[in-house]
Amino acid sequence: MSDTSNIQPFIKVDQITQQFGTQKVLNGVSFEVFPGELVALIGGSGAGKSVILKHLDGLLDPLTGHIYIDGQEISNIPEKKKYPMRKKLGFMFQQGALFDSMTVFENVAFPLGEAGITDEKELEKRVMDALASVGLQGSEDKMPANISGGMIKRVAVARAIVSDPQCLLYDEPTAGLDPIVSDSVSYLIRNICINQGITTLIVTHDMSSVIHIADRIIYLKEGTIHWQGTPRDMIDSPDPMIQDFLHGVSGEDWNKLNNPKLNPDFQQNIIQDAINDRFSTQTSQPL
C-alpha cells in the first residue's frame, strides 16, 4: 500500500471496540479503505463483520475508538449530524431488507423520495437506470415476497446505488445464492465499482468471490484484524489459519452447497478455479 500513503482514506476505522452484554465482539479494530478500492472483509460467522459494517454507517456507535468517512467522524455524534456522511454511503443489508409493503419500483424510489426528489420524470428515470444496471428491467411492479433470493439482493443493490453514493457497503451479497447467481452478483459488484468508480467494502465468506473480485482482503478474527493483503498475498501466505480459511477447512457456515464437509472436492475446485481464473494469465508459477 505504499502508493496510497499520501492519499486520504475514504473509510478510516481507528481502534474501535464493541461489546454486547458481556460478549466482547470488537477488540480494537483498525483498517482503512482507499477511494476506488474494492476491499473484502472476511471472517468466520459471528466474527463481527456485520457489526463493523453497521458501525461504518453510524447505525451503531463504538464504545471506544473512532470512525471517519471521507475525513469526517461518524461515530458517537447525534443522529442528524450523521446524515451528510450517510449520504456518501450505500448499504446493502444481509437479507436485502427491502420494504415488503412496497413494490420493487417503490423500494428503489424510496431513498430518492426521502432525499426530496419530487420530479416524477427524474425519479422514474433514475429508478429505471438503477434497475437496468442490475439487470432487473421489467420486474418493477413485483412485490419482494414474489421474487427470488438473487433478485432481492439485486434490488437491494439497486436501492443502494440509486442515490449515487461514493461508497458501497455490502453485507454478504452472495450468501445463500446458488453458484451461478452468486457469480453474477459478484461481477455486478465489481462492475459497479470499476465503471462508476465507487469505493466498495464487501463483507463475505464466499472465498471464490473474494479471490475473483477483491483488490485487498482484510481478515477479521477474534475481534481484531488478524491479517490483510491482496488475493495474491493470501494464496501465497504461509499462515495456516489463512490457508484453512481459504480452502474452507474451518469456514464454519458455508451454505450447504459449499459445505466442505459435505463435498470437499467440490469446494477445493471452486477455489482452485477462482485462483486459476484470476491469476493464470498473470503468472506462470503453478498454484
Binding site: E79, Y83, L89, F93, Q95, D100
Partner: peptide
C-alpha cells in the same frame, strides 16, 4: 417487529429516515 428483525429499521436509518 418484523421490520426490526429483518433490518428494515436499520435500512430506514441508513437512508437518513427517522
Amino acid at each position: 417487529g418484523t421490520m426490526k428483525v429483518t433490518e428494515q429499521i436499520d435500512a430506514l436509518r441508513s437512508m437518513n429516515v427517522n
